[in-house]
Amino acid sequence: MSIVVLEHVSKEYRLGDHMVRALDDVTLSFESGVFLAIAGPSGSGKSTLLNVIGCIDMPSSGRVVIAGHDISGQTPDQLASLRARTIGFVFQTFNLFPVLTAEENVEYPLLQMEELDKQDRRERVKEMLELVQLGKFAKHRPSQLSGGQRQRVAIARALVTRPELVLADEPTANLDHKTGEGILALMRDINRRYKTTFIFSTHDKKVIDAADRLVGIEDGTVRILGVRKEGQWAITNVARRAASTTDTEAAALKR
């Protein structure tokens, strides 16, 4: 079953007098359990695409189905429960609450779930902090943690609600290379062990190599689709403009 289905999705922003087309007729679908990279240069529409998938931004046109829910025409508040229960978010800037400790940050999304009592929440938080190897840092505030540790807390927070889908917008962009690799390895490990779907964006070609699926986008349109089998990328060009450009892109991405 496809966990994400996008059909002819476009997103336009008004910028002064003219319109910016951040997504241009994007049609995609992802299977549950994939570890998928959305790659493209800065400004290509990666964040916009992730925001649409994450139900925090509405497309200007097109149909979006997330985990079986058709979200077309719904307000952000109507989608709040879906976000809370089905989707986990990891951000480039970590976005932890600075006034909460690591464990309080991880607990935060659970506070909306009335079926969980204090004990349930405590267990889940503990389990998640251990999963990201931060059991000892439960009482630390974000300012007392390194960038990599903060991102691990954020991953624990994204997973604590047991979502089907985790969206990570450039999760390693604010980390040094080695720490970034650690974060990717952690996400990859969770993806393997628990079959949680991960979709992350990046403009870093090295990060792409951690993925098993690839969507290359540029100027708001999908240019290439990649599937990795036994370490080798099988790339499909989604040629809409001159084929030569796309080939170059694909080659660049594949390298």
């Binding site: 079986g68 429960s81 229960r85 006034v99 506070l111 779930m113 089907e164 079959k195």
Partner: peptide, 30 residues
């Protein structure tokens, strides 16, 4: 790490205690 579809359909609601606690921590810790 996954919940059943039935559970997923339950509406969420942020408890007053949670909002209050966050507010208190924002006051005390910042």
């Amino acid at each position: 790490l996954s919940d059943t579809p039935a559970k997923r359909r339950r509406p969420t609601r942020l408890a007053f205690r949670a909002k209050f606690t966050l507010a208190v921590r924002n006051v005390l810790r910042h």
